[in-house]
Nucleic acid binder design. Structure first.
Lengths: 68, 68
DNA sequence: CATATTTATACCTTTTAGGGTACAAATATA
DNA sequence: TATATTTGTACCCTAAAAGGTATAAATATG
């Protein structure tokens, strides 16, 4: 189960040298949510994802379909 | 409660001259979901949003924070 | 290799998203 | 304006997301 969003978050977190518990706390979401999010869970809540992305200075947006 | 994603979907739907019930059916989601989504509800499920965007040939992605 | 750190999985509880539907409000059309 | 169409709101129900936590698995470090 891959996910661009998941990969983005995982990579950004590592760039900042944060553990999952640290990111969870600083982004203001639950630890389990971070775990599931990074593992590509699709049935997550949009506002929670936005909350994490906001911590990284990003946000969700509509983009073209990528062919791959 | 504004939302870029909500606005995108509402506009795309109108471009295709679809009613909310029609979009709901064709995208394979509930009518109430379409309603709430277009009204900018933030606590929606990511997979459902993706499902609607897919119908429009788009998807969710991480983008830079927009200043406005 | 042994140990420490980090990540993944499992269990339970509370909250709520989503679906269906009915009706009201708003908008478009004759 | 009257009527038809579309959209918004309110109701109930079911399924499951999210949180907390404990423990196992994996990874990193000495």
């Amino acid at each position: 189960m891959e996910s661009r969003i998941a990969d983005f978050i995982k990579e950004r977190r590592k760039q900042l040298e944060l553990t999952q518990p640290e990111l969870a706390e600083r982004a203001g979401v639950g630890l389990r949510f971070i775990r599931e999010l990074e593992q590509g869970k699709q049935t997550v809540r949009l506002d929670k994802v936005s909350q994490v992305l906001y911590f990284f200075g990003c946000q969700l947006g509509v983009v073209e379909m990528e062919n791959a």
